[in-house]
Amino acid sequence: MDFISILSIFVLACFVGYYVVWSVTPALHTPLMSVTNAISSVIIVGALIAAAAAEVPGSKWLGLAAVALASVNIFGGFAVTQRMLSMYKKRERKDG
């Protein structure tokens, strides 16, 4: 991919992000933060590439460390978001 295609994806994604995030209800801003945190750990892709290649040992170990850190975030971030979201309940009909 050339630089302009990448930049196009980036700019359009910023606009998508802008509109999607404004549509998030304020009551869910904390889960929004924890889930964005989890997905920003997609940086694990870079970590895996480094960890998979063996020719430079230093690079491999840095990659493995990054894989571990990003994994904390991925599993922790999604799990804590799930835990929070499962707590949001509607009012029961009887006292409505």
């Binding site: 910023c14 998508v16 992000g17 933060m33 945190n37 997609v42 940086i43 892709v45």
Partner: peptide, 28 residues
């Protein structure tokens, strides 16, 4: 940070995520 790494790796998942998270934090 994730978006910049996505530029380096030419990876659309990272770029999209970076842009989403970046704008989310900025809006908050």
């Amino acid at each position: 940070a994730a978006a910049a790494m996505g530029f380096t790796l030419h990876n659309s998942a990272m770029i999209i995520t970076g842009a989403l998270v970046g704008s989310s934090g900025a809006i908050l």
